[in-house]
């Protein structure tokens, strides 16, 4: 870790933000193409070669639409709520490390925006603020479908945040740090398993935590089968029923960017981040690896959406509190015991 001038960090942050926005646009394209492939149809084909310009056309269309505000809406909160979702989703990417410190252009560059010593918790904290955008937007719309969606979102996010946070405790114990960079570096060490030498990816030592994390992450980002706040068959569009034009697009952006950030986060925590063959020598390979890992997670999201029906509200809460919470606590206890035993402190 080196201290680099602030302007370099700003440039890197600017780059990351733009990559995220473009990545989000093409995430929608990827999703539609993938869903199309899974459902025996083509997906977008008309706009540009193979429909590649479709996300841009969608964006322009959303900007050009009329911005409707319900008469009974609470105007300030209504304006303000989508921004919360959008901003908090993007801020989470600030602590994701895309690699270590590299030497390029004649100076030392950090491939991360900042290295907070509580980076993992930082991501969780901002995703928990993000739910305000949903709740407040739902309330401000003064629509009953929105209100029900907001209530569902509040209960769901509060419940699944616990699972999300606790499933990471095992990882923190093994890494001995809350900093994402330290966790990433820890996973680049080798693990000797008899004749086998593997990278110390935490998915190997924490498989249960990984599964729980993925379930909670899908719920936290309000995606199928946990997309109850916006369940279109019951609540029309849930919390964003009354939103249109670019206010709606902020929700849309926020949802997809938080998916990307969570995927990057999961790749960093459990799949070694940029680690992979040759990544220690070539930093660009590392970036490639972390992106591929994130895309695998994103594909998983889409796959779930194409396959599974939706949970009912009580089943969702039951799953969180009755199934996942005991499992996650079990995971913590077992990890702690093993950690203590390996340090010789237990017996």
């Amino acid at each position: 870790m080196n201290d680099q001038p602030l302007w370099l960090t700003f440039i890197f942050a600017f780059l990351i933000m733009n990559v995220l926005l473009i990545g989000m646009a093409y995430m929608t394209y990827f999703e539609r193409k993938m869903l199309g492939a899974m459902q025996d149809r083509m997906g977008p084909t008309r706009t540009g070669p193979k429909g590649l310009l479709q996300p841009i056309a969608d964006g322009i269309k959303l900007l050009g639409k009329e911005d409707l505000i319900p008469r009974a809406a609470d105007k300030w909160v209504f304006f303000f709520a989508p921004l919360i979702v959008f901003v908090t989703a993007i801020v989470g990417a600030a602590v994701i490390p895309f690699g270590g410190t590299i030497n390029a252009f004649g100076r030392d560059l950090n491939l991360y925006i900042t290295d907070l010593n509580v980076g993992a918790l930082f991501v969780l904290a901002f995703s928990s603020i993000g739910v305000y955008g949903i709740i407040l937007g739902a309330w401000a719309s003064s629509n009953r479908y929105s209100l029900l969606g907001g209530l569902r979102a509040a209960a769901q996010v509060v419940s699944y945040e616990i699972i999300l946070g606790l499933s990471l405790v095992g990882v923190f114990m093994l890494a001995g740090s809350l900093s994402l960079r330290d966790i990433m570096l820890e996973q680049q060490t080798n693990l000797e398993l008899g004749p086998l030498t593997v990278k110390n990816w935490f998915i190997l030592s924490q498989p249960l935590a990984f599964i729980l994390f993925m379930i909670a992450a899908v719920a936290e980002t309000n995606r199928a089968p946990f997309d109850l706040p916006e369940a279109e068959s019951e609540l029309v569009s849930g919390f964003h029923t009354e939103y249109s034009a670019f206010r709606f697009s902020f929700y849309f952006l926020g949802e997809y960017i938080s998916m990307i950030v969570v995927s990057l986060f999961a790749a960093t925590l459990f799949l070694g981040g940029p680690s992979g063959p040759g990544s220690s020598d070539h930093w660009y390979l590392g970036i490639l690896y972390i992106l591929i890992k994130a895309i695998v997670f994103l594909f998983f999201y889409i796959w779930l959406r194409a396959t599974l029906p939706r949970f009912r509200y009580d089943q969702l809460m039951g799953l969180a509190w009755k199934v996942l919470l005991p499992l996650v606590i079990l995971n913590i206890v077992v990890t702690a015991a093993i950690r203590l035993a390996s340090d010789g402190l237990l017996f």
Binding site: N117, L121, A125, S128, I129, Y132, I135, V158, L178
Partner: peptide, 25 residues
């Protein structure tokens, strides 16, 4: 930093959300 993050997660992310939950109704 730890206190700051915990402040956000616990107070903003959980307690105040529940408060809002009630207020909305």
């Amino acid at each position: 930093e730890f206190l700051a993050v915990i402040q956000i997660i616990v107070y903003t992310g959980a307690i105040l959300v529940l408060l809002l939950f009630v207020l909305m109704l």
